[in-house]
Write a protein that binds this DNA or RNA. Structure first.
Lengths: 215, 215
DNA sequence: ATTTGTGAATTGATTCACAGCG
DNA sequence: CGCTGTGAATCAATTCACAAAT
């Protein structure tokens, strides 16, 4: 099997979000051109992306919105419940626990872990917070396979290893630290700083362009 | 001038984070190979990225860590104070206001805006929260040019337009909505869902691989 | 002996161009 | 026609290969 290109995977959630809106407006079909214009993409690119999800459109009419939604969700495994634990419930971890959209796409946080004695034993957004020392055991006992990491500082690698020791196979890493784990562990980094770097550099480049319009 | 490739810009912050750590460990020089291994990248790619920042290394010795840090920060405009406002101080907005790393790279939030009467007039992480109706005027009066948007639901476009009306030229958009603004406005999206899509799809693909090892 | 810097080759992604279908 | 599906062409990014530097 060919693995799906990462850029395609990254675009699919934005298609989904748009499709929900179009469906709620009562639309039944949508063309690649409409999607492309709404999301500032190329229509061919939209069609190629959709091809991966095995949806086929009808000439003249476009794609069925409900079918597209269903198939994209299935393709991403967003139509199934996925339990997840989170290590680190500072402000970012708390924000994630309270983010309502996760429930819609099947992510259910079943526990949080932290070192702060004030937090341990409490509930955040109705999710129980445990001592981080219980992380490995909890994962082993519950069989959860997704872990998110939002700890500050440099304990990231150690915590990831505890997750893997318990049986987690997929890690969503919000920290700035690069993880080194077995190659059967799937790690995906979700960071703010790369996009801020693009933003601030583009601002400088725009200034330079304006001052020296020699392109 | 050639614009810097986006993948390069996105990697620079991870270099920076590693370089801070190496510097704090007392190291003075670093080779592209060391950086590449630590961050799971290709050494040539690291060297090409560094070329953009105008740092030149010394054969046999590598790059000066302090020089690299300084030049990457300068390249990204992370060595200068940049005022920013934020619209929407729900849990994500609150997390961002409390994220300590922003101060290190020169981002200073000078105000937050919300519709919630409970929040208006209060302070969050020591930053004053105003009524969102004051957004345009505040921006005009303060001359701030960066705006972050973390509002829930579908008011994103409207709020972005209010920011632009006040004079913001760079928008950091944390919502799932695609913005349509003048082409002199720099917009950068910072979303969670694309990376979650990569994570969940990679998990399915790994399962498929395991079940049908016909690659 | 290493490590940079960089053209050349390769791989990957996007966009073009158009055939085919309703 | 209007729209999909797709091979071909283009563009962009990564990786290779090696000369130059110390």
């Amino acid at each position: 099997m060919k693995t799906t290109p990462k850029p395609t995977l990254r675009r699919l959630p934005t298609y989904l979000h748009l499709l929900y809106q179009l469906r709620d407006q009562g639309m039944e079909n949508v063309s690649s051109t409409i999607i492309a214009n709404a999301l500032k993409l190329d229509a061919t690119q939209v069609r190629k992306d959709i091809e991966y999800t095995n949806v086929i459109g009808k000439p003249k009419r476009g794609y069925s919105i409900t079918e597209l939604i269903h198939e994209i969700e299935k393709f991403l495994c967003w139509d199934q419940e996925k339990d997840m634990v989170i290590a680190g419930v500072g402000s970012l971890g708390t924000a994630i626990l309270g983010y309502p959209d996760f429930r819609e796409i099947g992510v259910r946080f079943i526990a949080g872990f932290d070192t702060d004695p004030e937090k341990i034993g409490s509930k955040i957004h109705n999710i129980e917070i445990y001592d981080i020392n219980r992380l490995t055991d909890f994962i082993r006992e519950s069989g959860v396979s997704f872990g998110a990491i939002t700890v500050p500082g440099d304990r990231t690698q150690e915590i990831a290893e505890k997750m893997v020791a318990g049986g987690v196979t997929a890690i969503w890493n919000f920290t700035r630290t690069q993880l080194h784990l077995g190659k059967d562990i799937i790690v995906e980094n979700a960071r703010f700083m790369p996009s801020l770097a693009v933003l601030t550099r583009r601002v400088i480049e725009a200034q330079i362009m304006k001052e020296h319009p020699k392109d």
